[in-house]
Each structure stands twice: as structure tokens, then as C-alpha cells.
């Protein structure tokens, strides 16, 4: 059994740009297998685990956390060997200048996204953000060689290995939302120690960053009586508003708002208080921007709870989370599932 921090690092370093999750699905299935009765990978590369409940007629609880990450896609290979690209998911163009990347071609290729030397920038352009279409990936190959190894449509991920920081924190490229997957594993670990009546379906989902695709498919196929979504929310940084950013290390942020089921949310908050599990309140007045929006309206509608792990610097290659929050999230979810009324 891997310690939570090590697992987060291992998961963060997997490469699974939205739409190319198949390269990472086996690794996640293997992690789930340690705690589940059944594990399978569905046709869209959602990784599904089932931990059976003990009731004779168990209900189904669905827990999802997406495992895709934002990245880039090769749109053209120029005669000079440079690669043009477009973003996959919400990539902030400001973060990718002067970046090391891996191009997933015939085999993985090292590349860099260049940047103009400051000396050469026209002073009039200094305040403008660069556009994607003006940037290139340099893989150091001739056009001929590049075309042999790279195809239009190949995905590109960022090179930014996860590392341990002070205060039990970790920084890495895809903690959004591999730390959510790690929280699912924490939930399963905790559930092993507890009795639970209901079937627990855990799903590491795909293509969230492209419009909740994996979640939409998962909650249609698995008839759930309750869904729990684990994702990240904004960690607090200087200048962020108090009602939409949350300090690291103070526990999971329990979402509250129109599309989240009030009764369950209240019960979850009460449980956290009673069990002294650290938590925060995350007001979500709209769609939440998470898979909760998909599950809430799946088929007849599924009551949804949203648990978020505060992450600083979201959608940059140096996202930062606290391991303590991941553990707290897993504990809270597991206790809630085990403590449900029969």
C-alpha cells in the first residue's frame, strides 16, 4: 500500500492529455485493483472500480474524479521541423512560453516551446500576451525526420515532475485532478476498515476538460442513487476573493449551491463536525464547473455532493495541493458512505 503523498506524485506524473487517456488507464486500474472487487476500463477509457456493499439489496454510490489533464495537440508539422499546436482544454497561453514538453509521437520526443529573447521584442508588443498560433514546439529535428515521427493530432504534455514541498504539500503538472483520483483511493482505503451497505462505484473519468465527457457517459451507464464528485477548487493566493478561494491544509471544501443536493450537503457538514474532520464551505451559485453538473441531470437526476481539494495555480504546470486535504477528503467521503442509514 502506497502512502498518499507517494501515490499523488506517481499519479501526477502520468501523461493523460484529454482524449489520450488510454496511455494512463492501465496504471490507474492497477491502483484501483488493490481495493476493489471488480475493475474495468470502459470504451471511452473511464477506469471503473466496484467495491461491493454488504446489504442484500445494495444501493449504488458513484464517486468520480477525472484523470485527464490539459495539454496541447499538434496541428501541423512545418517544412523546417517546427510544430504548430493548439490547446486541449483551458490552457493559459501565458504559462507555456519557455516550457519543456513531451510530444507523444511514434515515440515520446523531448521538445521546448521557445520564446523570443527580450532584446528582440518590439516594445509596442511587450504588454500583449503571445497567441498560440504564433508559437512553435522545437523538437530539434529536420522537417523530414519530424514528419516521420510526428503526426497531426499527436498530443503534447508538459514536463513538470511533481515534487514534495514544505508543509506536506506537493506541486506538479496535473494535480487537477490526479489528487482527486488519489482521494478516491483514500476513500477506498478507509472503506476497507469500515462496513458499508452500498455498492461503491469509483470512476476515474476522461475528457472532463473538454466538457465532462467521461462523466456524462459514466452516470448514464451506472444507475446511481448518490454521486460524489471529487475535484479541485482554487487555493487562496494574494488577491483572490475570500468566497471563491480556500486555504490549503484546512480540509476539503464541501460545495453548497443550487445544483448540489441540500440534504446530503447538510448531512455531510454535520458528519465532518461530529467526526472532527477538517472542512470548509465552498459556495457554488452556478454549474460548479465540475462533473457535478453532469451527474445532477443524468437520466432521472442523481443527488450530487461536491468535495473539492484546494489547489493553487490551477491549470499551470506547478499546481500545488496539500496531502492533508486529500486524506481528509477520502476520510470524509468514506465515513459518509459507511454511515448512511440502512
Amino acid at each position: 500500500m502506497m502512502h498518499c503523498g507517494e501515490l499523488i506524485i506517481k499519479l501526477s506524473d502520468l501523461r493523460a492529455v484529454s482524449g489520450r487517456e488510454n496511455e494512463a488507464s492501465d496504471a490507474i486500474a492497477e491502483v484501483f485493483r488493490e481495493y476493489c472487487d471488480e475493475v474495468y476500463i470502459d470504451g471511452f477509457y473511464n477506469v471503473v472500480g466496484l467495491k461491493k456493499g454488504q446489504a442484500s439489496e445494495p444501493k449504488n454510490i458513484l464517486i468520480t474524479a477525472h484523470y485527464d489533464e490539459i495539454g496541447l495537440i499538434v496541428t501541423d508539422i512545418e517544412e523546417s521541423g517546427f510544430l504548430r499546436f493548439a490547446p486541449v482544454g483551458g490552457v493559459d497561453v501565458k504559462t507555456i512560453g519557455a516550457m519543456e514538453v513531451t510530444v507523444h509521437g511514434k515515440h515520446d520526443l523531448f521538445g521546448v516551446i521557445g520564446a523570443k529573447a527580450p532584446h528582440l521584442i518590439d516594445p509596442a508588443d511587450k504588454d500583449k500576451a503571445v497567441k498560440f498560433e504564433d508559437m512553435r514546439i522545437d523538437i530539434g529535428l529536420s522537417g523530414e525526420k519530424a514528419k516521420e515521427l510526428v503526426t497531426i493530432g499527436d498530443m503534447v504534455s508538459f514536463n513538470s515532475p511533481a515534487q514534495k514541498m514544505m508543509n506536506n504539500r506537493i506541486a506538479g503538472k496535473s494535480l487537477d485532478n490526479r489528487c482527486g483520483v488519489a482521494a478516491i483511493v483514500e476513500t477506498l482505503k478507509e472503506l476497507k476498515k469500515l462496513n458499508h451497505d452500498d455498492n461503491v462505484y469509483v470512476v476515474a473519468t476522461v475528457q472532463e476538460e473538454l466538457g465532462l465527457i467521461g462523466a456524462i457517459c459514466a452516470s448514464y451507464r451506472i444507475d446511481a442513487d448518490l454521486a460524489i464528485v471529487i475535484d479541485v477548487c482554487h487555493g487562496d493566493m494574494p488577491g483572490t476573493p475570500a468566497d471563491s478561494s480556500f486555504p490549503l491544509g484546512k480540509g476539503t471544501a464541501i460545495g453548497i449551491g443550487p445544483i448540489l443536493n441540500r440534504e446530503h450537503v447538510k448531512a455531510m457538514i454535520k458528519l465532518a463536525k461530529d467526526e472532527h474532520i477538517p472542512y470548509q464551505i465552498d459556495p457554488e451559485t452556478g454549474d460548479t464547473g465540475t462533473e457535478a453538473a453532469a451527474h445532477a441531470v443524468a437520466k432521472e437526476g442523481i443527488p450530487v455532493i461536491l468535495l473539492s481539494i484546494p489547489s493553487k495555480y490551477m491549470h499551470t504546470p506547478v499546481e500545488m495541493i496539500s496531502v492533508d486535504d486529500v486524506i481528509a477528503t477520502g476520510r470524509l467521503a468514506a465515513r459518509y458512505i459507511a454511515g448512511r442509514e440502512k
Binding site: P258, I259, T285, G286, D287, A293, A296, V297, A298, K299, E300, G301
Partner: peptide, 16 residues
């Protein structure tokens, strides 16, 4: 329910 936050309730109601 939840029309004002994205036409949510009607989706599940019509499915039923």
C-alpha cells in the same frame, strides 16, 4: 426546478 441555473429540472423530468 433549477431553470434559472441552466434548465436543469426539465431535463430530468422529461426523461422520466
Amino acid at each position: 426546478v433549477q431553470e434559472e441555473v441552466g434548465l436543469k429540472g426539465a431535463k430530468t423530468a422529461s426523461y422520466q
